Simulated scan of single mutants.
Amino acid sequence: MLGNAAVRFANLSQIDSDAATSGTGSAGIEFETKRLVVRVMYVTGSAREINASEGDAGFGRSILIPNTAPNSFWFDARTNIWRGLGPRAYFNASGSTWKSSDPEAAVGTPEALPRQFDVTQISFGASLSYMLDLSRAAGINDQSIHLIFDAGYGLRRVDADDATLIAGALGSNNQTFHGFEASVMMRVNALRVSAGVPIFGGDVAGLSGPKFVLTLGVEGSFYDIVSPSRDRQAFVPGDD
C-alpha cells in the first residue's frame, strides 16, 4: 500500500497559489513484477471548486494536469520489455465544481453572478517509457535513485449536463483535447521531482499550446506484501 503527497505548478512565470494546483494526498496499491508495475491510487479530500471568470486560465489549467482533484481515481501501468524500455499508459477520472461569470457583464446583472455546475474530467495517456536505475549503475545498495523518461500521446475530456456552460467557461466549443506529452522524473528514495511539457491543441487559456509543469512530491509505503516464491528484485531496469 502506498501514500503520496504532491503539489504541481503549471505556470512557472508566476509561482503562487493561482499557478499551483491544490496540494493533493492519495493512497492506493501497487503490484510489481520484473516486467510490470501497476498502481491504482485514490486522491482523498473534499470536492474541488474552480472559481474564475469565463475564458480565464484557471479552468484550462485544472484540465491540464491529471490526478489533482480530490475523489479522483488513477490507474497507471508501466512495463520493462528491454533494459528499462517499454510502453506506459495511465487513466484518470475525476469530478470538480466550476463557478464562472461573464467578465464583460455589468455589475449587478445576472451574467455577472457566478454560475455553478459540476463537471467530469477524463484523462488518458500512452507513451514510450525508459527507466534508468542510477543507484544500481553506481553500485549504491542502500539508496533508491531512478531517472524516468516518458514521451507519447495525451487526451483530456471534460463533460457536464449543459455543454454550453463548459463552452462559456473555456471560451471554446471543444470538450476533447489531445496532443503530445513528455516528462522526466527523478526519484530519490521517497522524494519525487518531475518536469513535463504537455502540448495540447485547441484555443483554451491554461491548457492549449506548450506548457511547462513542475511536480514536487513524496511517496512512501504503508505496508508491503512480498511473495516468498519470487525474488524481490522486481522491475529492474537494465535487465534483458
Rank of each mutant, 00 (worst) to 15 (best):
T33M: 13
A89S: 11
A89D: 04
L214C: 03
V43P: 00
L2I: 04
A20F: 01
D18E: 12
P103H: 05
V218A: 14
R187C: 10
A234H: 06
V218L: 15
L155D: 05
S62H: 00
G220Y: 05
A89G: 07
A69V: 07
P237Q: 05
E32M: 11
K99H: 04
L64W: 01
A138H: 07
E219D: 05
P237R: 06
A93T: 11
V7M: 07
E54Y: 01
F212Y: 10
T68W: 00
S100L: 04
G171M: 02
A93Y: 08
N67S: 15
L191E: 01
E54P: 01
G171A: 08
P66M: 09
D18W: 06
L147H: 10
R192D: 05
D203L: 09
D239P: 07
Q143W: 13
F180Q: 00
A112S: 14
G28M: 08
L85I: 15
N51C: 06
I148A: 12
V43F: 00
T164K: 10
A6H: 05
A106H: 10
L155Y: 13
V7T: 08
G125D: 05
E30A: 13
D56N: 12
S135P: 12
V37A: 15
A19P: 03
G220D: 08
I15R: 04
G95Y: 02
P103I: 06
D240Y: 06
S72A: 08
R61D: 00
S221T: 15
R157H: 11
S129C: 11
N67A: 13
R8C: 02
V226I: 13
N92K: 09
G125F: 02
G55F: 00
R83G: 06
D16F: 06
A105K: 03
K34Y: 09
A182Y: 06
E111F: 10
A89T: 15
I81A: 14
A137E: 15
Q116K: 15
G125V: 09
G201K: 08
R35H: 14
G139Q: 12
F212H: 10
R35A: 10
A190L: 06
P198Y: 02
R83H: 14
F180W: 09
W74E: 08
V7W: 02
S53M: 03
W74M: 03
M185I: 10
I81T: 13
R156P: 01
S172A: 14
I148H: 09
L147F: 14
S62Y: 02
G152P: 01
S100Q: 07
Y223V: 02
V236Q: 12
T44S: 14
S227V: 13
R136V: 08
P110K: 12
T44Q: 14
K34A: 15
A182N: 03
N173Y: 12
F91Y: 15
G86N: 10
I15D: 07
G60D: 02
S46W: 12
Q121M: 12
